[in-house]
């Protein structure tokens, strides 16, 4: 398969690299999350190339683990990538292309026209922004991330009553907390410093009596996310003949 060399795998750099803009584009793409896996598309190695011109035109190529990856998730990631790059003030124009996907033609054309999901598949869907799908996965990501933090506190000796009484401000800062706060803001769940540290998927505060149930649900959701991420990494690696992913678990 003829895939452009990946930019973080020692592939050739563009002849006229615009290093500053390129770095900023990559940083912007770090903020684009695979909603299904709750991981940035960059660390998942879904970004196969980024080209920039001196005039501020950007071209991003995306590749997915299989040609049959669900079109809805594919569209969300491609559209989010386009929007993230477009938000950079020095960018003049942006083209995002999905490579080797069975609906790539439809998705790419809709992206180029600036349209939503219905633009890509007229008559086949009436869900233009895929909001419900995104929200469902934000709630799953939130429970999995929160539980990781909670588990850490319980392991270090905190009791059930103690952890459910904590506020956002009491939590040790780190990437998990930051991602939880972003997810809560996106879901409209209070995330002020005095808001409860741990909430149910509905946004209600966690109670001591509900802690065991919540942790088991979270463990299951986290296992599912992890297993899916693992399968996606393996398939992507096999399909594009990539070097072993640093995130990869050996057999």
């Amino acid at each position: 398969m003829n895939t452009p060399a990946a930019f973080r795998e020692g592939g050739p750099q563009p002849a006229r690299a615009e290093p500053v803009l390129r770095e900023r584009v990559l940083a912007a793409l770090d903020g684009v999350i695979d909603p299904e896996l709750d991981e940035p598309i960059t660390t998942l190695r879904f970004v196969s190339s980024v080209d920039v011109t001196a005039g501020g035109d950007v071209e991003v190529m995306l590749r997915l683990p299989t040609p049959q990856c669900a079109p809805n998730f594919a569209f969300l990631m491609a559209a989010d990538a386009r929007d993230a790059v477009r938000r950079l003030p020095e960018v003049r124009g942006v083209m995002v292309h999905l490579e080797d996907h069975y609906t790539g033609h439809e998705i790419n054309a809709a992206l180029a026209r600036g349209e939503g999901f219905t633009g890509a598949f007229p008559g086949e869907t009436d869900d233009d922004d895929l909001g419900a799908l995104r929200e469902l996965f934000q709630r799953k990501a939130l429970i999995a991330r929160q539980a990781r933090i909670c588990k850490m506190l319980l392991d270090s000796g905190a009791g059930a009553e103690e952890v459910v009484a904590l506020s956002v401000a009491d939590l040790p800062d780190g990437p998990d907390i930051q991602r939880c706060l972003t997810l809560r803001a996106e879901l409209g769940i209070a995330c002020e410093p005095r808001s409860p540290a741990f909430v149910l998927p509905s946004g209600e505060p966690l109670t001591a009596g509900g802690l065991v149930r919540w942790l088991r649900m979270a463990r299951l959701v986290a296992t599912s996310l992890e297993a899916n991420g693992g399968i996606c990494r393996s398939l992507l690696q096999a399909r594009h003949d990539l070097a072993t992913d640093p995130e990869e678990e050996g057999p």
Binding site: L220, T223, I231
Partner: peptide, 21 residues
Amino acid sequence: GGLMHARPRFFAKVMGELLFW
């Protein structure tokens, strides 16, 4: 087929969850 060889740790967790639920 898809997990036991390629992802033994995930396989163990998935089996654990299935056995539990």
